[in-house]
Computed example of a mutant assay.
Amino acid sequence: MKNTRDNQLSDRRTASADAKSALLKAYHAAQVTAAPARAARQAERTLIAAAREERRLERERVRLEERMRFEAEAAEQQAAAQAAALAETLARESAEKARVARVIEDEAARKAARDLRYANRKARQA
Rank of each mutant, 00 (worst) to 15 (best):
A37M: 03
A49Q: 11
V100I: 11
L86S: 07
Q82Y: 03
A79N: 03
Q78H: 02
V100Q: 14
A40R: 06
R12C: 10
M68C: 10
Q82D: 11
R67F: 07
N120D: 09
D106C: 05
K122I: 13
D6W: 10
D11A: 09
E60C: 05
T89L: 10
T89W: 04
R102T: 03
A49L: 07
R12S: 06
A113Y: 01
T89E: 15
K2G: 13
E73W: 00
D6N: 12
A91S: 10
A80I: 04
Q77L: 11
R61I: 07
R5C: 07
A35G: 02
E53F: 02
E53T: 06
H28C: 09
E88P: 02
A17Q: 05
R117Q: 11
A22T: 03
T14I: 04
A75M: 11
K2Q: 08
R52S: 15
N3M: 15
R5E: 15
R110D: 08
N7R: 04
A108F: 03
R92A: 14
T46L: 07
V100Y: 07
I48Y: 03
T33S: 12
R110P: 00
N3P: 09
A49W: 01
I48L: 14
Y27V: 11
E58Q: 11
A84T: 00
A119E: 11
A81F: 02
T14S: 05
A101S: 08
A108R: 09
R110W: 06
V103G: 02
A37H: 03
A87R: 08
E44K: 08
L24G: 02
R99F: 11
E88C: 05
A84I: 00
V100D: 10
Q8K: 10
R121Y: 12
A83D: 13
R117T: 13
L47F: 04
A83C: 10
A126V: 11
R13D: 03
V103D: 05
T33R: 08
T4S: 12
R121N: 13
A29P: 00
A87D: 08
L9Y: 06
T14L: 12
Q82W: 00
S16G: 04
L9N: 04
E96W: 01
E73S: 12
E88K: 08
L57G: 02
S94V: 03
R67E: 15
N120A: 15
R5Q: 15
A123D: 09
N120Q: 14
A95G: 04
T33I: 06
L47R: 13
R59K: 10
A126S: 08
L86K: 04
R117H: 11
A87S: 13
A80K: 12
A72R: 13
R124I: 10
N3Q: 14
A72F: 13
R67Q: 15
D6S: 13
R38S: 13
A126E: 12
